[in-house]
Every structure is written in structure tokens, then in C-alpha cells.
């Protein structure tokens, strides 16, 4: 091994093993997973994402939501008991995610099933705009840069965020309107629901 060619061969082979085992295997096996179609109901799982949710994934990635929020419900832990979701997640759950934001930390709560816990878009907008007001003690940053404070001229916009009370709440005569990015992000968050069944996943548990 003290000659360059044989050393290069060894170095290449050592690397090729994990390259084939992890990358090529994932590419071939997991990369070809298909949605599960229930023969009786015709229901597709995981369900297709609403158009805006795909844009919302980009907003989620661009603002680094994954640095604090995981999207995994693990088996053999208290995750289901802590109501992070009705069942542990499996590889196929991430079929439509790009990027798949599994996350490594829970500086903030897990968001795998945030769309099951919060079903009201306005509620999510409030939490993004003034998280520390909605949840006292929260260390989540405010995403108010994804919103516009506008003077109400004539009729108020139907999209304005309701119920803001914190220091950045709109003064009288003003309203806070989500930008396209904020609306996409909220549509994406609302779409995060793993309440469908898959043959390889554990059955759903009622909360």
C-alpha cells in the first residue's frame, strides 16, 4: 500500500462501500416509493399537497424552521403518548416533502402533525407574527417580516390577521396582512397531517 495507485484503489473502495450502501440503496429503494392507493376507497396516501404548500416548503427551508423543529414521530418512545401524532412516521410519509425536513432538534415542538393540532390558518399566522405573545416564555423568533402592516383604506382586507395583541399589533386604522410567503408557509403547515394509514406503518391511535 505504499504506492500511489494501490493506495488510491483502497481509498476508493473504502468510500464506494458506503456510497453504494447508503446513497445508491436510498436512491433506488426509497427514491422509488410510491403513494399507497386504497383499493376500496381510492384514497391516496400520503395525499397530494395543495399547490401553495409546495411553495410553503421552500419558505420553511429558507427560514431555517428545521433548525428548531423536527418532523419525526418515533416508535418505541413516548412520542405518540405525548400526542406528537397518531402513529410513528415511516419513510413513505416524506414522499412529497422537498426538502424532507426531519430535523435533529426539538428547540421548538415537533411539527409532523401540526396540521392536526392547529386547523385554523389565522391561529398559525398569529403564532408566526407574535409567538411570544401567543405562548408566553416561547423563544421562537417573530416572523413579522413575512407580513405587511397596512393602513386600512376603506374596507379592511379579508386576509388580515385577526386577534393580534402584542407590542407589534396593528394600531387602530391599520391591519397586518400576510405576504404570499406567509400564506404559502401556513398552507404547508396546515397540510402536515399524518392521520392516514399505510400498510407498513403502525395503526392509528386515537388521542
Amino acid at each position: 500500500m505504499n504506492r500511489l495507485p494501490s493506495l488510491i484503489t483502497g481509498i476508493t473502495l473504502a468510500f464506494a462501500a458506503s456510497w453504494l450502501g447508503v446513497v445508491a440503496y436510498s436512491y433506488v429503494e426509497l427514491g422509488r416509493l410510491e403513494p399507497y392507493v386504497d383499493e376500496n376507497t381510492g384514497e391516496v396516501s400520503p395525499p397530494p399537497l395543495p399547490g401553495l404548500a409546495t411553495a410553503g416548503q421552500r419558505v420553511y427551508a429558507a427560514n431555517g424552521c428545521v433548525t428548531c423543529h423536527s418532523q419525526q414521530v418515533r416508535p418505541e418512545t413516548t412520542d405518540v403518548e405525548k400526542q406528537l401524532g397518531p402513529r410513528p412516521t415511516v419513510a413513505r410519509d416524506y414522499l412529497r416533502e422537498n426538502p424532507a425536513a426531519l430535523g435533529k432538534l426539538r428547540i421548538g415542538p415537533d411539527l409532523t402533525n401540526v396540521g392536526l393540532r392547529i386547523t385554523d390558518a389565522n391561529e398559525l399566522h398569529r403564532r408566526l407574527y407574535e409567538p411570544a405573545t401567543v405562548t408566553p416564555g416561547s423563544n421562537m423568533p417573530s416572523y413579522r417580516y413575512l407580513y405587511e402592516m397596512r393602513k386600512i383604506s376603506g374596507q379592511s382586507s379579508g386576509q388580515a390577521v385577526q386577534g393580534l395583541t402584542g407590542p407589534h399589533a396593528p394600531p387602530p386604522g391599520y391591519e397586518v396582512v400576510p405576504t404570499e410567503e406567509a400564506r404559502a408557509l401556513v398552507v404547508y403547515l396546515l397540510s402536515l397531517k399524518r392521520n392516514y394509514t399505510l400498510p407498513e406503518a403502525e395503526p392509528l391511535q386515537s388521542p
Binding site: 481509498i11 468510500f15 440503496y25 426509497l30 416533502e97
Partner: peptide, 29 residues
């Protein structure tokens, strides 16, 4: 030798022509 190989592999499969979500986590790890 390794750096360009794994860097290019991951960039192509996760950023430039992303594989579908299910396969992304192991490659990223």
C-alpha cells in the same frame, strides 16, 4: 479524493436534482 465525491453526490441528489423526500434523510445523514 473523498471530498469532491461526496460533496458532488449530495449536492446533485439533494439540491440540484432532488430525489424524492423519502430518500433524502439517509443521504443527508
Amino acid at each position: 479524493l473523498w471530498f469532491p465525491w461526496f460533496f458532488a453526490t449530495a449536492q446533485i441528489l439533494l439540491v440540484h436534482h432532488p430525489v424524492q423526500g423519502s430518500a433524502q434523510a439517509p443521504i443527508a445523514a
